[in-house]
Design a protein around this nucleic acid. Structure first.
Ligand SMILES: [Mn+2]
Ligand SMILES: [Mn+2]
Ligand SMILES: [Zn+2]
Ligand SMILES: [Zn+2]
Lengths: 145, 145
DNA sequence: ATCAAAATATTGACAAAGTCCAGAATATCT
DNA sequence: AGATATTCTGGACTTTGTCAATATTTTGAT
């Protein structure tokens, strides 16, 4: 319930506000959600909340690592509350579906590129692009002779 | 020279125009360039070219796989002419530098996630995030006691 | 409970990166 | 030369997000 979310905020040194709770709940319950969709959910929950408060909350939560951003090409930034496991994503080129994928080799193996060139790497962001089963079926329909 | 670029266009079924040549040259000679920078270079080369023509050319070239888009967080879309080798990128969180990195394990090994979930995967996009050597040095300066 | 300081939220303007439009003009290919 | 493809103009418009000044809320110490 709210106790859980409040604690998460407090543990990270953040004031607990209705706005942040609504945003954190929206992201927790809807993985890979856009800021716009968060706004809709939060407005439904609170009656009113400013767009700026949404962005403030999302940015603060991301800064404090309570949530994570992903930014697929051609889509606005998306947010998820599943953090700390360096998991990857699988995105359909046709319909935009996003799936979570566990790290391919084990615990964050992808942090090791073939040559780090002196960089101090803290994250490997991996997106697999393809066509989801539904969109494949759809395409097959179309190709029927 | 121009012969090379023209052939690349023709081979992909595209009309050869001064605008497309200028755009393709800009991208080929400046890996990870932004649309805005392409506009500057093309204007310098041709005297005049519309912003719309830049985007038309970039989108057409990307559609035909003559160039590739990458879209790092917090930066506008970037374009590069190095295609077909599924190479990765290393980006500095501080200054935004972008480096090419060869595929980690061999020939596009990353196309295999731990579980493809029925997706038909055609690309694995990998971005390593970190701090470049210069930005590390800068930070160290600051931390000097 | 009360109160002040610090942190947040609201509001409205603003900005960046693109897209869309639609007819007229031009260039390319065969 | 003729058919087709591309570009130009240039403003309006959209989406995603930030900025800055002001108002409100939260927190922790009385
Ligand atoms: Mn995820
Ligand atoms: Mn590259
Ligand atoms: Zn799909
Ligand atoms: Zn750097």
């Amino acid at each position: 319930m709210n106790k859980d979310l409040s604690d998460r905020l407090r543990r990270h040194g953040l004031h607990v506000t209705a706005q942040r709770l609504a945003v954190l709940r929206a992201v927790s319950e809807h993985p890979h959600i856009t800021a716009d969709a968060v706004l809709d959910l939060a407005q439904a929950e609170l009656g009113a909340i400013s767009r700026q408060a949404i962005y403030d909350a999302l940015n603060t939560l991301a800064d404090k690592n309570l949530i994570r951003r992903i930014q697929p090409m051609g889509s606005p930034t998306r947010y998820e509350a599943r953090v700390g496991d360096n998991h990857h994503h699988l995105i359909c080129r046709i319909c935009g579906r996003v799936e979570d994928v566990d790290c391919a080799v084990g615990a964050a193996p992808c942090l090791m590129p073939s040559d780090a060139m002196g960089y101090e790497i803290d994250e490997a962001e991996v997106i697999y692009w393809g066509r989801c089963p539904a969109c494949q079926a759809q395409a097959d329909m179309h190709n029927q002779t």
